[in-house]
Computed example of a mutant assay.
Amino acid sequence: MKIDLIGRTAIVTGSTAGIGRATAEGLAQAGASVVVNGRRQERVDEAVRQVRAAYPDSAISGIAADLSTAEGANAFIAEAPDADILVNNVGTAYLREYRDIRDIAAIPDEDWLGLFQLNVMSGVRLSRHYLPRMIDKGWGRVVFVSSESGVNTPKEMLDYGMTKTAQLAVSRGLAEAVAGTGVTVNAVLPGPTRSEILGEFMVKQAEADGITVEEAEQRFLQALRPTTLIRRFATTGEVANMIVYACSEQASATSGAALRVDGGVVRFVA
């Protein structure tokens, strides 16, 4: 299967590193013009430079904007008013040690609200701008990068899991709203992945315990994700492959779906 996105413009939020960066590269490889996004201008500039060097035949641009705020989203939209593909990837998590309910009770309002603004509202704000324009053209792709934590809520990251479940609700609802228009909306659910946040956490954990990163990852899986079937962390490229497919012409019959790239962590038949 050859995915051809020549002539399509794709926005990937939070794409200076991790899953977002791998997705931007995958879309560029397929021929799309890609808009890279991050909060800091220097990181955006460096990501654009590297993606351009790797895929010189694709048009790559970058916009620095904090999408956790309405002002940041509006500034982004002003610079990139139109798109055929929107990948709502930007997000973060607060990795904490969980001992008992007191750790959950101690999560402050700022953490709950901050994660919701970044992980959920960024996608809401951009989708409500770009979706009507996609409908007018009769073609479009919106993908929310959720998580297996959205259906398998982790007690050690309850606030994060809440936002990932919310993304699934928004994604499905928007898919229902654009039914029959030629526009699809889907969610992709990664499992443990060697992304920037979790990857750095594993490096620090390995250093603290005097073990290798691979050993630290295995301890993490055994303790917190023992149902994994691949028994390793996924790569960002493996997750990006699913996202790029969901953005393709070949995925035209897939909408309203929650596409799992979780290594089998979630023990659902469906």
Rank of each mutant, 00 (worst) to 15 (best):
Tyr160Lys: 06
Ser146Pro: 11
Gln205Asn: 13
Leu229Phe: 08
Thr227Val: 04
Asn37Thr: 02
Asp136Lys: 07
Gly72Val: 02
Asp109Tyr: 12
Ala246Lys: 05
Gly256Phe: 07
Ala64Met: 04
Val87Trp: 03
Val143Gly: 07
Met134Lys: 04
Lys2Phe: 05
Arg96Met: 13
Gln41Met: 12
Val34Ile: 08
Glu79Phe: 00
Ala251Cys: 06
Gly237Ala: 05
Asp84Asn: 13
Asp109Gln: 10
Tyr98Lys: 08
Asp159Asn: 13
Asn241Ala: 15
Thr69Gln: 08
Asp57Glu: 10
Val12Ala: 08
Gln222Gly: 12
Glu196Arg: 15
Ser149Val: 01
Arg52Met: 07
Leu221Ala: 11
Arg8Thr: 03
Asn88Ser: 02
His129Lys: 08
Arg232Lys: 15
Arg232Phe: 03
Phe233Thr: 15
Val87Thr: 07
Gln250Pro: 01
Gly91Met: 04
Gly237Glu: 10
Ala65Trp: 09
Ser61Thr: 14
Gly123Trp: 02
Gln218Lys: 15
Thr9Pro: 05
Glu176Pro: 00
Ala187Leu: 08
Val44Gly: 10
Asn119Leu: 01
Thr235Asn: 10
Arg172Asn: 00
Arg125His: 13
Glu148Asp: 15
Gln29Asp: 11
Val183Phe: 03
Val178Ala: 06
Pro56Ser: 06
Arg232His: 01
Glu200Asn: 10
Ser248Gly: 12
Ala166Met: 07
Ala70Trp: 00
Gly26Lys: 09
Lys164Leu: 05
Thr13Ala: 04
Asn37Gly: 00
Arg8His: 12
Arg219Pro: 01
Ser146Ala: 14
Phe220Thr: 07
Gly264Pro: 02
Met162Cys: 06
Val124Glu: 06
Thr236Gln: 13
Ala59Leu: 07
Lys164His: 06
Ile107His: 01
Pro56Asp: 05
Arg219Met: 06
Val34Arg: 14
Ala53Phe: 01
Thr212Met: 09
Ala75Cys: 04
Ala73Lys: 01
Leu224Gly: 00
Arg219Thr: 09
Ala24Pro: 08
Ser68Trp: 09
Ile85Pro: 04
Ala187Lys: 10
Glu238Cys: 12
Gly26His: 13
Leu95Asp: 00
Thr193Arg: 07
Ala187Ser: 14
Lys164Ser: 08
Ala253Ile: 06
Leu27Ala: 10
Ile197Leu: 15
Val269Ile: 05
Ala234Phe: 04
Arg219Gly: 02
Met1Ala: 11
Leu168Val: 09
Pro132Ser: 07
Arg267Thr: 07
Asn88Lys: 09
Thr69Gly: 06
Asn74Trp: 03
Arg128Cys: 03
Phe268Met: 09
Val188Gln: 08
Arg40Leu: 14
Asp109Cys: 00
Glu215Phe: 04
Met121Pro: 08
Thr16His: 04
Tyr160Ala: 07
Ser61Cys: 11
Gly150Glu: 03
Val269Arg: 03
